[in-house]
């Protein structure tokens, strides 16, 4: 068994001269819930499409559930064990909710009937309604049902909570928690840092097609610190030449540093500037994300 449900090496996708994904090394360990963060157009959807064989990589390699994404046949076999929600959640407008379920179910021998019934009730999906007449939120819910009921080992979800109200978002996150407890690996992209923080144990941040960081969320939170220096005079700020300073800003008598590790050396260096106050505070994912993307 592969240690990683998803693993890519130098995965690249160009459209003409534009590079949508640049030399991406992505690793999603088996059994994890990995949040995939990035701005609009950062390359999230292109990456996801390459993982599923919907787009061909320009160069680089990758495996999903052990199958090479360049091997059409192996990739097809792997897709039997993958649940997917696409970015725009469009479904066949000429099919009713019931037909859509019937259609999708036929491809998955491990289809979970009980879950299907439960989700139909929970999401209040009208079986007879044509999917073309569903609201965006309803369509997202149906797309999620179609992904979750496959009994998949790996869920790849492109913005699975888009267009949902906060109650529904919480319901969806709960379903993901349950799927993970059942042993599924989950890789999902999102704009909502808060929901990634809530449910993911790993994050991957992509910007402009490049992977900025990927690691365990706990490690990230334990590694990063904000260091605040106050002076009784104009801050005597010169760039500290110490490894680990992710960002630095000075304003009047205050200096704010974001450190991505090596805290002690940075604190020691900062002390040498003789501040009247030096505080070290923990940071949340949003700060780390914004800082990473801003710096890139």
């Amino acid at each position: 068994m592969n240690q990683f449900a998803i693993q890519t090496h130098a995965l690249t996708k160009s459209y003409g001269r534009a590079e949508a994904v640049r030399s991406l090394n992505l690793e999603v360990p088996d059994g994890s819930i990995c949040g995939f963060l990035g701005k609009n157009g950062a390359g999230k959807s292109t990456t996801i499409k390459m993982l599923l064989g919907i787009c061909w990589p320009t160069s680089g390699a990758g495996t999903v559930l052990g199958a090479s994404i360049r091997d059409a046949r192996a990739s097809l076999e792997a897709r039997r064990r993958i649940g997917f929600v696409s970015e725009d959640k469009r479904l066949y407008h000429y099919m009713s909710v019931g037909q859509m379920i019937c259609f999708t179910r036929s491809f998955y021998p491990r289809w979970r009937d009980a879950l299907e019934q439960q989700l139909l009730r929970q999401f209040q999906l009208p079986l007879e309604r044509k999917t073309g007449q569903l609201s965006k939120g309803m369509r997202t819910k149906l797309a999620l049902l179609l992904a979750l009921c496959r009994g998949a080992d790996l869920l790849i979800l492109d913005e699975p909570t888009e267009g949902l109200d906060p109650v529904a978002v919480e319901e969806v996150l709960q379903l993901l928690a349950r799927a993970a407890a059942d042993g599924a690996t989950i890789f999902f992209s999102s704009h909502q840092i808060a929901e990634v923080e809530q449910i993911a144990d790993r994050v991957a941040i992509i910007d402009d097609g490049r992977m900025l960081l990927q690691e365990s969320l706990d490690d990230l939170k334990e590694r990063y610190r904000r260091i605040q220096l106050l002076f009784d005079r104009e801050a005597p700020w010169k760039p500290l030449d110490v490894r680990g300073i992710a960002a630095a800003r000075a304003e009047g008598p205050a200096v704010s540093l974001l450190a991505s590790g090596n805290i002690d050396e940075i604190v020691a260096a900062a002390r040498s500037l003789d501040p009247v106050s030096l505080e070290v505070a923990q940071v949340n994912l949003k700060e780390i994300f914004l800082e990473c993307v801003r710096r890139n």
């Binding site: 599923l52 997917f84 066949y92």
Partner: peptide, 15 residues
Amino acid sequence: LLGTAPFLLSLPVGR
């Protein structure tokens, strides 16, 4: 164009 291709191709169906 209609946005349903990713859904179909995510199924174990070859192009």
